[in-house]
Design a protein around this nucleic acid. Sequence first.
DNA 1: AATTCAACTTGACTGAAATCATAAACTAAA
DNA 2: TTTAGTTTATGATTTCAGTCAAGTTGAATT
Lengths: 198, 198
Amino acid sequence: MVPENILNAYQASVEKYKKDEVIFEENDNAHHYFQIHQGQVKMNNYNENGKEFIQGIFYAGDSFGEPPLFADIKYPAAAVALEDSLIYKLSKPKLINLLEEQPKVHFHITERLSKRLFYKSLMASEISSEEPEHRIVSLLHFLKKHVHHLKDHEEFEVDLKRQQIADLTGLRVETVIRACKNLEKKNKIRIIKRKIFF
Amino acid sequence: MVPENILNAYQASVEKYKKDEVIFEENDNAHHYFQIHQGQVKMNNYNENGKEFIQGIFYAGDSFGEPPLFADIKYPAAAVALEDSLIYKLSKPKLINLLEEQPKVHFHITERLSKRLFYKSLMASEISSEEPEHRIVSLLHFLKKHVHHLKDHEEFEVDLKRQQIADLTGLRVETVIRACKNLEKKNKIRIIKRKIFF
DNA sequence: AATTCAACTTGACTGAAATCATAAACTAAA
DNA sequence: TTTAGTTTATGATTTCAGTCAAGTTGAATT
């Protein structure tokens, strides 16, 4: 996350995206750094059968889609606004220039990439080897600890639809529903008015 | 990848690890930067039932296990030498100092993290939504393009055992064997003396 | 209050990969 | 050239998440 005054100093623009508007597509070349001022963004893929996989969901303050700015690769997934959003946009050359001049900001970006990698490692091993209930609990635990910055014993309301949980964990929505009911029975989560608390 | 003369200038040590020796464990705190001088290293997890998942395999010149040096997280996986190896080891404070003084090296690290993230994004969507054959082809394609730096039409010998392919793609070894036989029938890979060519 | 629409739910059935068991092929060492 | 150990291979069976088809619930809009 680059401080907004610095983004402004380097002439970042602020772009409006409507809910469901595509910010970039899978396999596009990257030309800009993106950081959310207001709103929510998901990065996702669709396979041949139309099944969605959500690589991540990003919130105000988060940057997304940085890797192709730093390595010779294309976007591995698309980015789509989940709600009407305001997003800082800074051209690649200006970003590189910024990072050269502001080493501290470069370390912030490095930290951000590291955390994304941590999440990916976690979910990779979960998706590859664990049962539905375990995958879901791991996702919720990650959200509690690393997104909401809460302790284990603190409870939070999960701001995800069943379908989104499915698309983040590689499951189907019916499986998520059934697994969540089981987790409720086992007192691992609470469900109040269909909302999940963990 | 940090140039070796720079590593030496910052007093990195070179450590010997025997085949199968553990370099660090899952959930350990990170204190050092690691870069392979000679040999091979894998990072992996085991689930409760003993099933292995390989997060990645690293070769001479590669660094590994950087993220917990930059973010407040533990190692998401263990690191194990796949053969007798010589590995540069640099303490975290010295690394940070190095990156502050050598911005170009910092950009190398950023590039490296970005490429890892790309691989992870790719495999995540594959593992979550694709059939065995598709997963295997995607892995091989990644290896051809991003590890061996070959064009699509160029062929290379895959230096992975069936079990390793299974552990990288979240499949079981029997499934990999059967999928590979199918891929051979479809002329998508060649198998000569049990070695896979792609 | 009626209508619409998205999100969630449930039950029945299916199928593909996991599992299990066993063996063949290869490799390296004694 | 045996032997021991690893890797690859194959068939039979099982299992559990996926699929399909139908609801229900609840919130928003007319």
